[in-house]
Amino acid sequence: HMTFVALYDYVASGETDLSFKKGERLQIVNNTEGDWALAHSLTTGRTGYIPSNYVAPSD
C-alpha cells in the first residue's frame, strides 16, 4: 500500500469515517469510492473513510 500524509485535520462526520490530524500518516486500502478513500491510519491504527483530497502521497 502507498503511504499518504494528511494535509489538514479532518473530523469524522459518521461512524464509517476516519478522523485524523494534519501530518498523520495513512495507507489507502481502497480508492474506488471517487472523492472518498478507505484508509488505515499508521498513527492510530484505525481504519475508515477519508476525503481523498485531504491527503497527498508521502515519500
Rank of each mutant, 00 (worst) to 15 (best):
F20Q: 00
A12S: 09
V5H: 05
G45I: 01
A56S: 10
N30Y: 14
Q27F: 13
S19Q: 05
L18P: 06
S19L: 08
R46I: 06
N30D: 13
V11Y: 11
N30P: 07
S41I: 02
Y8P: 00
R46N: 09
A12I: 03
Y49F: 11
D17Y: 13
V29W: 13
P57I: 12
G23Q: 01
Y8R: 08
E15C: 13
S41D: 03
D9I: 03
V29D: 06
G14F: 09
V11H: 09
F20M: 07
G34M: 06
G45F: 04
D17A: 08
N30G: 15
L42E: 06
R25Q: 10
G48Y: 02
D59E: 13
S52L: 15
K21H: 09
F20R: 15
A6Y: 01
K22P: 02
F20C: 05
H40C: 14
P51Y: 03
K22E: 05
L38A: 02
G45V: 01
Y8T: 07
Y54I: 08
I28F: 07
T44L: 03
G23V: 00
G48E: 01
E24D: 11
E15H: 09
A39N: 00
E15S: 12
F4K: 04
L38M: 09
Y10V: 03
S58H: 12
Y49H: 06
Y54A: 14
P51A: 02
F20K: 00
V29P: 06
G48H: 02
S19H: 05
S41W: 01
G14N: 13
V29T: 07
T43H: 08
A37D: 03
N53K: 12
S52C: 15
M2F: 11
Y49S: 03
L7I: 09
Y54L: 14
G34H: 07
Y49C: 13
D17Q: 15
S13R: 13
K21Q: 10
E24H: 04
E24W: 01
V55T: 05
S19E: 05
T44P: 01
D9T: 06
Q27L: 15
N30R: 11
A12K: 04
A39I: 05
D9M: 02
G45R: 04
G23E: 03
H1V: 12
Y8A: 09
F4S: 05
Y54G: 06
E15N: 10
D59F: 13
A12V: 04
D9Y: 02
L18T: 05
Q27M: 14
F4N: 03
Y8Q: 09
D17F: 14
D59Y: 12
D59Q: 11
D59H: 12
D59S: 11
G14D: 08
A6D: 01
S41T: 01
D35Y: 12
E24F: 01
T44W: 00
T16P: 05
P57G: 08
T43V: 12
H1T: 12
T16F: 15
G23C: 06
G45P: 01
S58Y: 14
G45Q: 05
D9H: 02
H40P: 00
M2S: 10
T43D: 15
L18E: 03
E24I: 01
S13T: 14
L26H: 00
N31C: 15
A56M: 11
W36P: 03
L18Y: 04
N53T: 09
Q27P: 00
G23P: 00
Y8I: 07
I28Q: 01
D59W: 13
T43W: 06
A6G: 05
P57F: 12
Y10Q: 01
A6N: 01
D59G: 12
V55F: 11
A37H: 10
Y10L: 03
